[in-house]
């Protein structure tokens, strides 16, 4: 199977190295340094964080390469960047820039409503969002080396990330009970390749790391997602839309490592100041939700 190919091993290997860590959205070299000093395992270089993309409206595209380069020069940890769903030319540009991971992201306006990028063609690894197991396995079939929940980015509201993580974990648990004769029907139902369904049945997990994203704003949010089965946490708008980004970044890093140490989480959560205000999902009209982008 393709999991054993050297190229894929190197891609999934980097995702393994990011486990138990926090990946932070940043828009400037200064923010990137704050993230690195707070213990982030990687940064996502963006022109605008998701909350501002949401507020700004219009077509959201790949960031200005100048922004990405400046952030690459500022830090030693891996630098990720986002391209639009299906926009393989943006991905080719990001690969040329030497970004360490590409997020084919629903936070940007999709470029192709039918096809995601053929990620096997790239040397750089990809992370993709999902809402359920079928979506996760389709992205892995396309070559994604890491999966994350979609959540609802830029809301500071964890409810959608919880829904997506629970959906994935529930379906994984169910599949582990299936017999051989049930796998093809299950693959049909999920819309995913039968080899991947078999892998999940045999191993009780995805073949790539499974991270949480979309709405994480507090140390307790990070602990919640880790306890629900996330292996790392992306924090988008939650840090640099809050009152005290450095303190909040440090606290979320500690809460992710020590996600079962509630005394410590209580201690690091003290006096962090205002979290980002956040949005109730009912305030967001259906057509403005990001999680529904891609399939």
């Amino acid at each position: 199977m393709w999991f054993d190919s050297p190229d894929y091993k190197v891609k999934v290997g980097l995702a393994e190295m990011l486990k138990g860590g926090v990946i932070m959205d940043v828009t400037t070299p200064d923010q990137a340094r704050i993230a690195e000093d707070a213990g982030a395992v990687a940064v996502m270089a963006l022109e605008r964080i998701p909350a501002d993309i949401r507020a700004h409206g219009g077509v959201a595209r790949m960031s200005d390469p100048k922004v990405i380069r400046a952030i690459q020069e500022a830090v030693s940890i891996p630098v990720m960047a986002k391209c639009r769903i299906g926009h393989f030319a943006e991905a080719q540009v990001l690969e040329a820039l030497g970004v360490d991971f590409i997020d084919e992201s629903e936070v940007l306006t999709p470029a192709d409503e039918e096809h995601h990028i053929d990620k096997w063609k790239f040397k750089v690894p990809f992370v993709c969002g999902c809402r359920d197991l079928g979506e996760a396995l389709r992205r892995i079939a396309e070559g994604a080396a890491m999966i994350r929940t979609k959540g609802e980015a830029g809301t500071g509201n964890i409810v959608e990330a919880v829904r997506h993580m629970r959906a994935v974990q529930r379906e994984i648990r169910r599949i582990t009970t299936l017999g051989d004769e049930e796998l093809v029907a299950e693959a049909k139902r999920l819309g995913a390749p039968v080899e991947l369904v078999r892998y999940v049945r045999d191993h009780g997990r995805l073949p790539v790391p499974n991270f949480a994203a979309g709405g994480v704003a507090t140390p307790a949010d990070a602990s919640l997602m880790m306890q629900l089965g996330a292996e790392s946490v992306f924090v988008g708008s939650g840090i640099f839309k809050s009152e005290n980004p450095a303190a909040r970044a440090r606290a979320i890093v500690l809460a992710t490592t020590h996600y079962m140490d509630f005394d410590l989480i209580a201690r690091v959560s003290e006096g962090l100041g205002e979290a980002m205000r956040g949005l109730d999902l009912r305030e967001i009209p259906e057509e403005q939700r990001m999680a529904g982008r891609g399939w």
Binding site: G20, G21, G39, A40, V41, S76, I77, L254
Partner: peptide
């Protein structure tokens, strides 16, 4: 993993 993260967390 990331060595900067290790050292940060070891200190913390």
């Amino acid at each position: 993993g990331e060595s900067t993260t290790f050292v940060h967390l070891m200190r913390e």
